[in-house]
Design a protein around this nucleic acid. Structure first.
Length: 210
DNA sequence: TCATTAACACGGG
DNA sequence: CCCGTGTTAATGA
């Protein structure tokens, strides 16, 4: 516990805060595809990601999903970080994309530490900023790109967090994430394959380009 | 033009 | 046989 937290956050948090995290925090490892937080649930803990990746999605009234971004090592969830501002229910859904380890901290600590530790303030605001930029990036591909570019954006993100150029996924799952139809994904993937960007197999996509 | 929905055939496991 | 895939046709934005 001490070793893991020191190793990952030594350069981020001051010594006193590290001690508090070691005392209060709880290290958890979840297998791939675990529902960590559902839309509308109350947030009780905030995660500091140690390893792995978490897929963050938005859900609309019809229960349709829309992929937003991945949380990676060293990052935290902007949704829970805003807990102290007053919105206590989650606006997003979080599912582990790979096996993911994290330090869980009670949400009440967020506010306490903000007034107590400079490094924590910096961490909270930087994380907020990063998530915001990532969100803009995703919005850009939705608003200004065609679906093909959006698909590539999605695939390269996916390849990055899985640390592999082979993605294990079905066309239907991609369609759910991008909130479009399977026909479109199949057609676009086929085109990308013909263009030499990817190679297709059943349940698998190989990314050839960078 | 490009997306959606429905429908169908193919084939691997 | 079931599921994922590739494709087409009709319709719409």
């Amino acid at each position: 516990m001490r070793d893991i937290i020191t190793k990952h956050f030594k350069s981020v948090f001051e010594a006193e805060l590290l001690e508090e995290i070691i005392k209060i925090g709880e290290i958890k490892t979840y297998p791939k595809d675990t529902l960590l937080m559902d839309f509308g649930e109350y947030m009780r803990h905030m995660p500091l990601i140690i390893d792995g990746a978490i897929k963050i999605s938005r859900i609309d009234k019809n229960n349709d999903e829309l992929f937003l971004y991945f949380l990676k090592r060293g990052q935290s969830c902007a949704m829970t970080l805003s807990y102290f501002i007053g919105h206590h229910k989650s606006e997003i859904k979080a599912v582990s994309e790979t096996e993911t380890s994290m330090v869980l901290l009670p949400v009440d600590q967020i506010e306490i530490w903000i007034s107590k530790y400079k490094s924590w303030r910096k961490f909270v605001f930087e994380n907020y900023h990063e998530r915001f930029i990532e969100l803009l990036d995703t919005i850009d591909t939705i608003a200004f790109s065609n679906t093909s570019e959006r698909l590539l954006h999605y695939l390269s993100n996916k390849a990055k967090v899985n640390k592999s150029n082979t993605i294990k996924i079905t066309h239907q799952e991609i369609a759910f994430d991008l909130n479009t139809s399977r026909v479109v994904i199949s057609r676009l993937l086929k085109t990308l394959e013909q263009e030499g960007e990817i190679k297709l197999e059943r349940n698998k996509i190989y990314i050839l380009s960078k």
